[in-house]
Design a protein around this nucleic acid. Structure first.
Lengths: 211, 211
DNA sequence: ATGTGATGAATGAACATTCACTCGCCCCAA
DNA sequence: TTGGGGCGAGTGAATGTTCATTCATCACAT
């Protein structure tokens, strides 16, 4: 997804999206509280005063980031829902996401910041909350398709499974950016994360035959 | 572990430990960058000037926090190593830790902050890195006992497993503090986390019979 | 007296937020 | 075609606040 963003960076596209990219990077580099308004404005290539016209507060920035990412996620899930084999498509999509986070796309620091900020600032907590619950919603819809059960039954039986997938993906993204282990260790861990995700999906798929 | 800290809070114990507790809370409440030196000093019940005598920088505070927590972890692992059934002891210890993080002990925000800060500030990254690699080391030693293999073989085969356990425990602690889901949902997720940990441990234990 | 642990006011830098202002552009009357 | 006038993006200096860090000073036990 980052590649898409990068590819279009030079082309004509709404100003706000470009600004959003610079905000992402600045938050990732300096932290949520560490990034000053002047840092953010300068990174966006504009004056401080004008910057306030776009984002009156940091919470508004997080909201914009979340909204855009959520749209990308939704797109992916509509693709999965339309696939001939939703289970395979979901599995593949998740594996790919884990791969991407490991190399190239460095969203880990950004989400570490946002996660931490969400636990302190209620406005941000609410925004992040909403995002995660929407993603869990997409997952549950996919689970319902996979297990061949009504949506509300999937909700009852697989709420924890959806939460686990979200948690694993986020944790893996954050962990992938921790510089410590050699690359071999990271790859091994990523493989294990993928197997864990497979195990969660297997439990969902197993409900199909039982019912 | 928090309970231990709390119980001794009023009794006579080294000053630095008390200060450390107040620092933990302040970081958790205001964030790593959000907490000013004056905030930290006031929370510790002392003047700003004197505070610098104890901790000349925020990195030093993180180092002290990490060092103390690491000592607690080491204690737990020596207990596990001495147990009649190390697998059961490790499993039980991990489950208990997941339980604790869910209710009562709110270390989630603190570790979210430290994790985020570690990705930005190299000094903190190094400290956190060292802590996690030591914990992975304890886990690997336990794995070696459980699987009945030399320590270096465990290191080769289960590096990812140890990293996964650390990741799961941390992610669960952070997730447990996110206010969104009702308590029922949290408990379900905790149960699934425990099962995931069990699955990882089962893989380690399974190596025993094969070899 | 003297050393030790503690204080909190002082300093200058950095911060969030506002505001008076410029400039380029487009629409429309003449 | 032209020119004036309004509109909105963009500026950066000004204001009052908070920050990290230092240091002259204090209380007091020895």
């Amino acid at each position: 997804m980052t590649s898409t963003r990068m590819a279009l960076a030079t082309a004509a596209r709404p100003r706000e999206a470009e600004i959003l990219d610079s905000i992402r990077q600045t938050f990732a580099e300096k932290g949520f509280d560490g990034a000053s308004m002047q840092d953010l404005a300068r990174a966006a290539g504009m004056s401080v005063g004008n910057f306030y016209r776009y984002f009156p507060s940091k919470a508004a920035m997080v909201e914009a980031i979340v909204t855009r990412d959520l749209a990308e996620v939704e797109e992916k899930f509509t693709g999965i829902a339309a696939a001939a084999d939703p289970l395979a498509a979901l599995r593949c999509g998740l594996h790919q996401h884990i791969e991407e986070e490991c190399s190239g796309c460095d969203d880990g620091p950004l989400w570490a910041e946002i996660t931490a900020a969400a636990l302190r600032k209620p406005e941000i907590g609410a925004v992040v909350q909403k995002m995660e619950s929407e993603i869990r919603g997409y997952l549950l819809s996919a689970f319902a398709m996979i297990a061949g059960m009504p949506r509300d039954e999937a909700e009852r039986r697989f709420a924890a499974h959806s939460a686990m997938v979200v948690m694993l993906v986020k944790a893996a993204a954050i962990q992938a950016q921790a510089g410590g282990q050699v690359s071999a260790g990271r790859i091994e861990l990523n493989g294990l994360v993928k197997r864990m995700i497979d195990a969660v999906l297997a439990e969902v798929a197993a409900a199909q035959s039982k019912d």
